[in-house]
Design a protein around this nucleic acid. Structure first.
Length: 228
DNA sequence: ATCCTGTACC
DNA sequence: GGTACTGGAT
């Protein structure tokens, strides 16, 4: 039997779980904010913080036009950091993340016409600019590129490393860029595929490939080779 | 290697 | 009561 390809594994997960249909937010602005808030944090906590921001009218409560979204961007930029920190408190690391959100939001409001224009820039340039912002690392930048800007960028996270290194499909010591390259080389560059695959990886990591007490016997990937 | 932090789950 | 969480900076 041939070694399972990354695309084969994708289809296996898709068959098992069904489509996840991730669209983590109602507007690109909300997705961007969520990408920062979810750093090393469970999504449920992020949702509470997002609800607070909507209550304060700092995020659109529903899907809206670009102008309304831009008004929220400016509002966030003008909110004092301590107030922003109080609103996002349920997401944890609130002082840290309030600063990071301001770094990101003010970079956009100070240097670009509006959010949509910013997100429409060429992928490589946009990625470089995001990574230059203090508090935006590779995973956060790529989440924004894929989920807010719709670019074909594969998002790597701790689950990706854990699942695929446990199955000896990645070296244990592989870094972010190496992992991303392996997936990008093996998959067609389609945002929809990257979107769904990342969502399926997260689902698998949470339910089966847990950090401790992994549920290998019932895992959809149990037939792949794996260590111990 | 350590710090940042609330929340949910084991 | 401890662990883990869709990380990143120092």
């Amino acid at each position: 039997m041939p070694e399972a390809s990354l695309l084969t594994i994708y289809h296996r997960l898709l068959d098992f779980f069904g489509p996840q249909r991730w669209w983590p937010g109602q507007t690109p602005l909300e997705i961007m904010v969520g990408a920062v808030l979810t750093q090393n944090t469970a999504w449920g906590n992020v949702e509470k913080a997002i609800a607070n921001l909507k209550g304060a009218e700092l995020l659109p409560a529903t899907a809206v036009d670009a102008a309304a979204q831009q008004a929220c961007l400016i509002g966030l930029a003008q909110t004092p950091t301590p107030l922003l920190a109080a609103l996002i408190r349920p997401a944890g690391y609130y002082n840290l993340k309030a600063g990071r959100l301001h770094n990101l939001i003010r970079r956009i409001s100070d240097h670009h016409a509006d959010l949509e224009t910013f997100l429409a820039r060429p992928t490589a340039e946009l990625r470089r600019e995001l990574l230059a912002i203090k508090g935006i690392g590779p995973e956060t930048a790529d989440s924004i590129l894929l989920y807010a800007a719709g670019k074909p960028v594969f998002v790597v996270d701790a689950y990706t490393h854990r699942i695929f290194s446990r199955h000896q499909l990645l070296p244990e010591e592989a870094d972010y860029h190496q992992i991303q390259e392996i997936f990008s080389d093996a998959l067609p560059a389609e945002p929809q595929l990257y979107n769904e695959y990342h969502a399926l990886i997260v689902r698998t990591g949470k339910e089966f490939c847990r950090k401790s007490n992994p549920r290998c016997p019932t895992c959809p990937l149990r037939t792949l080779p794996h260590a111990s």
